[in-house]
Every structure is written in structure tokens, then in C-alpha cells.
Simulated assay, not measured.
Amino acid sequence: MSPLVKNIAAAVLMLCTAGGASAVTLDATDWINADDPIKENQSGTSATGDGFVNIYGNGDLAVVTNEIVSSPFDFSGTIYAPEDDDILGLVFGYENGFNNYRITWTGGEDHDWEAGRRFGGLMLVSEDEGVTDVLWRDESLLWSARVEYDFSLSVATDRISFELREAGASLTGFSVGGDFSGVAGRVGVFTRSNGASFFNLDDAPLPPLPSAAATPLAVTPLPGGLPLLLGGAGLLLWVRHRRPS
């Protein structure tokens, strides 16, 4: 094969295979059932595996790592609920139902009893010996059934950051500063009176979204299509690499 043909073939192969890397998931096979962090109940059943946790039976249940995780760390994945409108969430720094951090999200007018008044929406809560503190709240944001939401949680020693995405676009996010150097405990997911699937679980953040300023260039096909395009590329390479006469 001539060097010219090799160069063209390599360029086409790179275009065809770009972005083809496979995702790495977090194996949740040995995660354990625990009390839900709101009412300290356990009901319903769970199934775990490589990169996923399912909670069935309208459960009040947390499913958490078998080991202690200390800050800094990342946790990401996808949330999906087939029906209902109660509570879905994430837990971290989880010791038990009375000592934890959690992200609580409702699909309707439900509430995190221990965090105070009735509300709907998304919030970040810390609980220490049964005393709760709401660190961030957006009461306007509700989840919808049969929609996949991607989440990304980052816990640093001085900051907790969270992002939700839907259909590849950012839905909401927050970053709360403070001393979180002592955050240590189990990490996982939970539901309150709801079933849900949590999948694509990973111990890395979601990849950055494309910059809004990076608008893709519009490409107008050349007459004759791909053969003409490759022919032009070949001519350019020939002009650049030909030997002087």
C-alpha cells in the first residue's frame, strides 16, 4: 500500500472511531441495604450489580457501599423512576439514618420529614444525631416519571457540588462551600415510598458538556460526495510530500 493511501485510510479510520471508548462503571454488587435516611425505615427489595441498583416495591430503602468513603470523592450515574412522585435521592457520609448527608428529590408535593416543613423539589441536607440542616434547596424542580436524569456529585474537603442533566443538557446544579473535610461514611442511593433504578454508576464525575461557544461548523457536501473529498485530500498530501524534480 502506498504512503498516500495509508495516510488517507488512517485519517478516515480516526474519523470513524472517534468517541468510541467504552464507559467504566462502579460495581455495586456487594452494596448493602440500610435504613432510608428520612424515616429510618427499610421496606421493599433491591437488586444490585455492575453499575446499577434497583429498588422495588414502593420502597423506603437505602442501598449503600460496603466500605467507608471519605472526602474528596465523586459519584455519578443515571436516575429513572417508572411511576409515582415521591422521593428519590443520594446519600453520602452515611453512618445511619440519623447521621448522613443526602440529596432529596421529589416528583410532587412530598417532604423530607426531618428537614422541616412540607416541600416539593430538590435539596441538600446534612443530619447529625437527628438534627438536620438544609444546605441548599430549589422547590421549583420536580422529577418526572419515565425520564432519565444524569447526576454528578463531587464532595471536596471545602465544597459539595452537584449537577443534574436531562437529554444531554444541564438541568440544574449547585456548589456549597464549607468544611467538609470530615465527611466519611457509606455512599449510595435511596427512595422514600417509591421504586427507582440507578444505573451507569461511576466513581468519576460526568464528562463536561460542550461549551455553548463552541458551535460546530456547518459542512456543505462537495459535488460528487466522499470520493471527491478523499481525492482532494490525496491531492493535498501529494503536493505537500512530492519530491523536488
Rank of each mutant, 00 (worst) to 15 (best):
D60H: 08
S70A: 15
M123P: 02
L141F: 10
I8H: 09
P3F: 04
A47E: 12
G225S: 05
L88Y: 03
F180C: 08
V24G: 00
E83D: 15
F199D: 07
L235W: 05
W143P: 01
T65A: 07
S70C: 10
L13N: 12
E83Q: 11
V187F: 05
V147Y: 04
K6S: 14
T65Y: 02
S2Q: 03
F180Q: 10
F180T: 05
S126H: 09
S193H: 05
V134K: 15
Y94W: 04
G77C: 01
F199I: 07
L230V: 14
S76H: 04
F162D: 10
N7E: 14
A62Q: 03
V131L: 06
G234C: 12
G19P: 08
T220D: 06
G121N: 12
E163I: 08
S43R: 04
G116N: 09
S140Q: 14
A214R: 08
T157S: 11
V239T: 05
G178K: 07
L13F: 10
A196Q: 01
E163H: 03
D85E: 11
L236A: 15
F180D: 11
D150I: 00
G177M: 12
L26E: 01
A204M: 08
A21C: 09
S154G: 00
R240I: 15
S170F: 00
P210F: 07
W31H: 02
S76E: 03
A169D: 13
L230Y: 12
